[in-house]
Structure formats: C-alpha cells, structure tokens
C-alpha cells in the first residue's frame, strides 16, 4: 500500500506570531517553527497501518528550507521518503495554490492508495486544504476523522465536527484528514533519527510539478490583503472578588448591559 502524508511546519502557538510589514505574509523568520502537532498524528496513523500491511510512506511538505526539518522528523518516526516543494515563487501562496501544489506532488507518487493529513493547522485555520486536495485528485474525502479503519480496499472512518458525528465509507484510493483525538504520536527513536539522515528527500521545483503552465506560470494567490492591523489586546474590565454576593452583582451587571 502506498501512503502519502501531508505535513506543514507552523509557528509555535506558544510564541508570538507577526505579519510581515511589507507583504502581510507570516513573518517566518521571526517565528519559532515546529512540525504541526496534528500532522504528527497523521504520520502516526500511517505508521500504524504500516505495522499491519506492507506500506510505503511518502511525506510531502511545501514550505521554505526549514520545512525540511518537519519532513526529517516524520522520516525519523518511520516514513520512507520525503518530497519537499520549496520555491520562492510560492511565497504568499493562497489556500488553493497550496492545495494545487500538494495535489501535484501526490500525483508524482505512483499508485497512491491513501493520502493522510491533519484536519486543520494551528496557524492558518482555513481547514479546507485536505478537502481541496481531494477535489483536485478526484478522491473521496473522509475528513475530520477520529477513528480510521482500512481493510480490503475500503476505508471507513468516524467523522466528528460541529455538525455532529457521522460514519463514512469509501473505496481506496481516498483522502483522510484526522483530528487530534485519533492517536498519540510516537517519539522518533535514536535509531530512527540516524536512519532518517539516509532516507531520500526529493525536491521537485514548480516547473517539474506543472510542466504545462504557461509563461505567466502558476497563479500564486487569488486574494489580496488590503490592510493588516495588529489588534489591541482586549482590555480587562472590572474585577470582583467574591464575598458571597458576586453572583448577585453579576446579575446587576448583565441587566445594566441589557444582556438579560
């Protein structure tokens, strides 16, 4: 079975994140970049399948040079090879272009049975990339799943979203995005880290992925930031220390603001 895992490097949510003054893109130079936690769980889901089937795992990431570290981490966990799309022309890529590049990279892998991704990233929050990749590849989308079973050419999954829960079923090949509840990712072993250094990482450029693009090339973004303004931190209001009557004070507070 051929599995592709899509991963993304993101700024650490614990660190301050800033937008570049010049082009309103994420200031990645200043940010502390880490492999997105949910992506580690997508990799873990692939590795669990590899334990019971004869699976080959390719990890794909789009991003600057530093994204190589995210790929290495997944290789150290046990994936077999990497594809890193790193091209300056992709700076400021929108959600759709990101998905197109990832889909094109998946197409370079032969006979893919399963594409795995995290259901959301902690930075962009669009949560749409896996669905768009499924659209572009013509694969069934089984997204936001907390439980996954692959058997006899079929994938079934438990989807959990704000619209409730659903059981999904589709034939392979398929795309699955997993939630943070699916598993606990393993730590790379020392042996794994050493082995990862010898695993191949292919670095196709955009011209390899899109040989038919004309001279104007790939549309990088279809949206434009008009204005980006840092928000003043929300100021703290009044503070009450409960002396036995705070609940009644709160009632008055809500009445005064016409909230009850």
């Amino acid at each position: 079975m051929n599995i592709v895992v899509l991963v993304k490097q993101v700024p650490d949510t614990g660190a301050e994140r800033t937008l570049s003054q010049t082009d309103h893109t994420l200031d990645r130079e200043d940010a502390d970049l880490v492999l997105d936690e949910i992506n580690e769980r997508a990799a873990e889901a692939a590795l669990i399948l590899k334990e019971t089937t004869d699976a080959h795992i390719t990890v794909v990431s789009m991003g600057p040079d530093s994204a190589r570290e995210a790929i290495r981490k997944v290789l150290a966990m046990g994936a077999d090879r990497g594809i890193h799309i790193c091209d300056d022309r992709l700076r400021g890529a929108d959600v759709l272009t990101t998905a197109k590049v990832l889909a094109a990279a998946v197409r370079t892998v032969e006979d893919v049975d399963l594409v795995l991704a995290g259901n959301t990233t902690t930075d962009g929050q669009a949560s749409a990339v896996p669905a768009i990749v499924a659209e572009l590849l013509g694969l069934p989308q089984l997204t936001h799943v907390r439980q996954l079973t692959v058997d006899a050419g079929q994938v079934s999954a438990e989807r959990e979203t704000d619209n409730g829960e659903a059981t999904l079923q589709a034939p392979l090949p398929a795309l699955v995005s997993i939630t943070e509840k699916i598993n606990e990712p393993r730590y790379p072993s020392f042996k794994g880290i050493m082995a990862a250094k010898k695993k191949p990482v292919h670095t196709p450029d955009l011209d390899d992925l899109f040989p038919d693009a004309d001279d104007s090339g790939l549309l990088v973004t279809r949206t434009r930031v008009v204005e980006a303004v840092p928000r003043p931190p929300r100021a703290a209001g009044i503070r009450i220390t409960d002396d036995g009557s705070a609940g009644r004070h709160l009632v008055e507070y809500l009445i005064a603001r016409k909230l009850v």
């Binding site: 931190p233 929300r234 100021a235 703290a236 209001g237 009044i238 503070r239 009450i240 220390t241 409960d242 705070a246 004070h249 709160l250 507070y253």
Partner: peptide, 8 residues
Amino acid sequence: LADCGVVG
C-alpha cells in the same frame, strides 16, 4: 480579557 471577572 474578561469585561467582568469574578475571583471566586
């Protein structure tokens, strides 16, 4: 960031 905070 609470408009009204109760310690209790």
